[in-house]
């Protein structure tokens, strides 16, 4: 019988991670863990493109998470972060060509998969799929927001 002793300890945050020291005083934001320079982006995201989008086996798949900054004249500009490195860039997408379903609007989250398919005969087919996630407010959040606006307006007066 082994005489090893195993002690369970709570997980420790690696030293390279930083946490903002601000208290959750406003309730607007979640606590955000950061680390110097780059974030680890989309660790829980599915990297493979959605199965229903595939014609052939996906090769060289890349996932980006993005935020819609502006929609103007059917052009969507968004800030994107590469999974998982967090490298940041900016993309321009066309509503007609790049999106299916409801049009994106300010603040929406984008998941952008890019990959190539090799159907044979030396053909390389570039593929792209953009998925939009919109934030829906709960009843409680709506009430909270309305209360804030009412309070601010009252303070104005």
């Amino acid at each position: 019988m082994s005489d090893s002793v195993f002690v369970k300890r709570p997980p420790r945050r690696p030293r390279r991670y930083r946490v903002f020291e601000l208290p959750e005083h406003s309730g607007f934001l979640h606590r955000v863990d950061t680390r110097p320079q780059r974030f680890l982006v989309g660790a829980d995201e599915q990297v493979e493109p959605p199965e229903d989008q595939l014609s052939d086996a996906p090769v060289n798949t890349t996932l980006y998470l993005g935020r819609v900054d502006d929609v103007e004249d059917s052009i969507v500009s968004a800030t994107v972060w590469e999974h998982p490195s967090g490298r940041q860039g900016m993309v321009f997408l066309e509503i007609d060509a790049d999106f299916e379903g409801p049009e994106p609007c300010f603040g929406d989250l984008l998941r952008i998969w890019t990959w190539v398919e090799l159907p044979g005969g030396g053909v390389v087919t570039p593929r792209k799929r953009v998925q939009v996630e919109r934030r829906e407010l709960s009843e409680a959040e709506r009430a909270e927001l309305q209360e804030l606006v009412d309070r601010w307006k009252a303070e104005e007066e």
């Binding site: 979640h30 989250l109 919109r134 934030r135 407010l137």
Partner: peptide, 17 residues
């Protein structure tokens, strides 16, 4: 803050912070 989809773990949340 209330219009951002997928609010967790993206660097722009830190910007807002």
């Amino acid at each position: 803050g209330k219009t951002r989809g997928g609010r967790d773990s993206l660097p722009d949340n830190a910007d807002l912070k």
